[in-house]
Every structure is written in structure tokens, then in C-alpha cells.
């Protein structure tokens, strides 16, 4: 790939999703765009960029930016964290919630495994722990292609054997004739998926008690990271928690987002003085 091609694509990614690419990662760019490039019959990414420059196409650009984001997603990717949320963070939130309605946002959910893992855990826990709670799980991603997979809830032979015990696989999935596995309707009904770009305002999603944003911000340029975290934290209810991936610290990105003293790995939004918390 020519250097100018790399620069054009890197610039496009930055503008659309805030994602940044080092020149040493140009192979990642090529790998992630190979399907689109093939579909559109471009021999090389150089050709693709030439065409895009000659005939700018916002929709195609957005599709490219979405394809460039990472797709790393597996069931129970961070099991400890998910269990902590379900057995500790949610019951704590329930205590202060007036209507018993709790909302979880999986930001950058890719093909949905994280959201379904939470739904699965919620279906298994001791009922008394979250008695009377009505829990909504919303998964968002920039990629409509990923969201299609998430909505169908159909996963391959290799996907369902990583992070899931055989008992969970049997209990919560149905084997299809194709050899793939579909997550049960009961769990699918617990989760909704919506397209959303984290560098854009998220107020249409409403407010949340728990926000998971794992392995998403780390790929972004610093200024975009700040912007994304600002958008995300705007949607956090007072006393709610944001979780990032281990090694992905949110400290110092935004003044009012601070580490939680109560829940390991969690971040909360410092309340402005004089403002009363209202859930």
C-alpha cells in the first residue's frame, strides 16, 4: 500500500470513528478492508482510495470506518468483571433505584457476546439478589454488519467453545443445521442492539446505571478518546459506574470521571457540588 493511501485511510478512520492507526499496523488496515475491497472489485487499497477521492461517498466512507474497528469479542471476555456487575454493582444500584428499573449499556459491543454474557448471567443468578428489578441491556456499535450478527445471535463452532461451558451452551443455545449455534429467544429478548458512533452525542440512548466500554477507547486518538468519554459519561446516572478493560485506564481523560473506591475497575462521575443526585 502506498504511503499516501495509508494516510488517507488513517485520516478517514480518525474523522469517522476517532480511531488511530500507526504505520506499522497497515497490515491490520488491509486485513480489515479486504472484504469491502473485494466486494467493490478494487485490486488494491490504492485503487479504493483513488476512487473515493474522485467520487466522495459519505456512506461508503462510514462503512469503511466501521470495518476498520476491531472485532475482538468473545463470551465472558472478562468473567470476573461481568460477575462483579451482576452480583454486586447491580444490587447496589437497585437499592437506590426508585422504579427498580436498571439499564446497562455495552458500548462498542461488536457482535454482541458481551451483552449476551450479561443476559446469561442474569438468567442464572439467585432471584433474591435482584428481586423486582427490571433490567434492560442495550448494545451499540458503529458497525451495522456486526450488529446484524448480534441481532441474529448466531455464532460459529469456534466462538461458542471459547468462554462458554458445555452446560451453558446446551442450556442457552440451539444447534442449527448449518453447524452454527443460535442463542435462545429468552436471552435475545433481554438485549437490544442499536447503531451508535461513540464520538457522537449519545443522549438518544437515555441514561444508564452501568456502562461497559471495553477495548474501544484504547484504539482512539487522545482527543477523540476525551470526546467519546465525555459523550459516554453524559449518559451515566448519578452514582452509576463505567467499566473499561483492564489496563485501559480512564484516569486523566476527563476531570469529573474518577475511579470508584467501592467497585474494582469501575469509574464514576464526580457529582457537582450543590447538585442533588436524582436517579
Amino acid at each position: 500500500m502506498q504511503e499516501s493511501t495509508f494516510n488517507e485511510i488513517a485520516d478517514l478512520a480518525l474523522r469517522h470513528s476517532g480511531q488511530t492507526f500507526q504505520p506499522s499496523k497497515s497490515y491490520l488496515m488491509e486485513a480489515r478492508l479486504s472484504a469491502i475491497s473485494r466486494r467493490e472489485s478494487f485490486a488494491t487499497l490504492d485503487d479504493l482510495v483513488h476512487c473515493l477521492k474522485a467520487r466522495p461517498n459519505k456512506r461508503f466512507e462510514a462503512e469503511i470506518a466501521a470495518a476498520l474497528t476491531g472485532k475482538l469479542s468473545r463470551f465472558f471476555g472478562d468473567r470476573d468483571l461481568l460477575e462483579r456487575i451482576v452480583t454486586h454493582a447491580l444490587p447496589e444500584r437497585l437499592k437506590v433505584s426508585k422504579a427498580g428499573r436498571l439499564r446497562i449499556w455495552c458500548a462498542g459491543v461488536s457482535t454482541g457476546q458481551e451483552a449476551y454474557s450479561l443476559a446469561l448471567l442474569l438468567s442464572e443468578i439467585d432471584e433474591t439478589l435482584l428481586k423486582g428489578a427490571e433490567i434492560e441491556i442495550v448494545g451499540t456499535d458503529i458497525s451495522t454488519q456486526c450488529l446484524e450478527v448480534a441481532n441474529r445471535g448466531i455464532y460459529g463452532h469456534f466462538d461458542v467453545q471459547k468462554g462458554l461451558s458445555i452446560q451453558r451452551l446446551m442450556r442457552h443455545f440451539d444447534r442449527m443445521d448449518t453447524g452454527e449455534w443460535q442463542i435462545s429467544n429468552t436471552l435475545r429478548e433481554r438485549v437490544t442492539f442499536r447503531r451508535h458512533n461513540l464520538i457522537e452525542d449519545a443522549s438518544s440512548l437515555g441514561h444508564f446505571d452501568i456502562i461497559l466500554c471495553r477495548n474501544v477507547l484504547s484504539g482512539m486518538a487522545k482527543t477523540m478518546k476525551v470526546k467519546a468519554l465525555s459523550n459516554i459519561s453524559q449518559q451515566l446516572l448519578p452514582g452509576g459506574l463505567i467499566f473499561s478493560a483492564p489496563g485501559e485506564s480512564l484516569i486523566g481523560l476527563q476531570e469529573d470521571v474518577i475511579a470508584s473506591m467501592d467497585v474494582r475497575g469501575g469509574y464514576l462521575r464526580k457529582q457537582k457540588q450543590g447538585k442533588t443526585a436524582a436517579a
Partner: peptide, 25 residues
């Protein structure tokens, strides 16, 4: 799979498998 579990198997890998699957199981 059900018969294997009832007969005392603890986990179950469906072939083909890779290192990740074995480690996860």
C-alpha cells in the same frame, strides 16, 4: 453431549478444535 455429561464427563469439546478452545475448556 447430554449422554456424555450424564455419564460423568466434566466438559465437552466438539472437533475441530484449536489451542484456544482447549485452554478455555
Amino acid at each position: 453431549i447430554g449422554e456424555a455429561i450424564r455419564s460423568g464427563a466434566n466438559e465437552y469439546i466438539m472437533k475441530p478444535f484449536d489451542a484456544d478452545i482447549v485452554e478455555s475448556k
